[in-house]
C-alpha cells in the first residue's frame, strides 16, 4: 500500500506539514478558522523531529500488524482491510490511550474533539485521498508511494 515516506535530505524543518495536517483535519478546512476559531494549534498528526541540522517528519506507519489495533480495548482502532489504513472510529474511543503507549514510533498523541477523546494519529487523509502533508511540503521532502517491505 502507498504510505508517506520522508526524505531527510530535503526536510528543512519548516513544519508546514504539521500546519497542512491541522487544516486538513479541521472542520472549516480554512487556515485562519482552524487556528483561531477552532483552536487546533498543536494537534497535527505528523510531528517533525529535530536534531539540527537534521529533521524528519514522523507519522503513523500503518503497520501490517498494528500494536495500537491489538491494544485497543474498545475496538475503535482498526486497520481497513481494503486500503490498509489504520484509523480510529472516533465514536467508539474511550480515551484509555493504550494506543499512545503502545505505538513503537510515538506517532499517536492524546487529543479531544467536542469534549470526546480522539487519538491524534495519521489517517493518510482517507477522506481526501491525497495526504495533505505530502501535497503541502514545499521541498518535496515527503512522498506518497508504495515500497517493498524493508524499504
Amino acid at each position: 500500500m502507498k504510505k508517506v515516506y520522508a526524505r531527510p535530505a530535503y526536510c528543512m524543518n519548516c513544519h508546514l506539514c504539521e500546519v497542512n495536517c491541522i487544516v486538513a483535519h479541521s472542520r472549516s478546512r480554512d487556515l485562519f478558522r482552524a487556528y483561531k476559531r477552532e483552536n487546533l494549534r498543536g494537534t497535527a498528526r505528523v510531528i517533525v523531529e529535530e536534531r539540527l541540522p537534521l529533521s524528519v517528519a514522523v507519522q503513523c506507519r500503518h503497520c501490517d500488524d498494528p500494536r495500537c489495533v491489538a491494544g485497543c480495548i474498545s475496538g475503535a482502532m482498526v486497520k481497513d482491510s481494503e486500503t490498509g489504513i489504520v484509523y480510529c472510529q472516533e465514536d467508539k474511543c474511550v480515551g484509555c490511550w493504550t494506543c499512545v503507549a503502545g505505538c513503537p514510533y510515538g506517532a499517536i498523541r492524546p487529543g479531544e474533539k467536542n469534549g470526546r477523546p480522539v487519538p491524534l494519529k495519521c489517517d493518510l487523509c482517507r477522506e481526501a485521498g491525497e495526504p495533505a502533508c505530502v501535497a503541502g511540503c514545499p521541498n518535496r521532502a515527503l512522498v506518497f508511494e508504495e515500497r517493498r517491505a524493508g524499504a
Partner: peptide, 12 residues
C-alpha cells in the same frame, strides 16, 4: 490577525 504562530519564519 493572520499569524498562526507556526514558527516557520523563525526556523527559516
Amino acid at each position: 490577525n493572520k499569524c498562526i504562530k507556526c514558527l516557520a519564519c523563525v526556523r527559516q
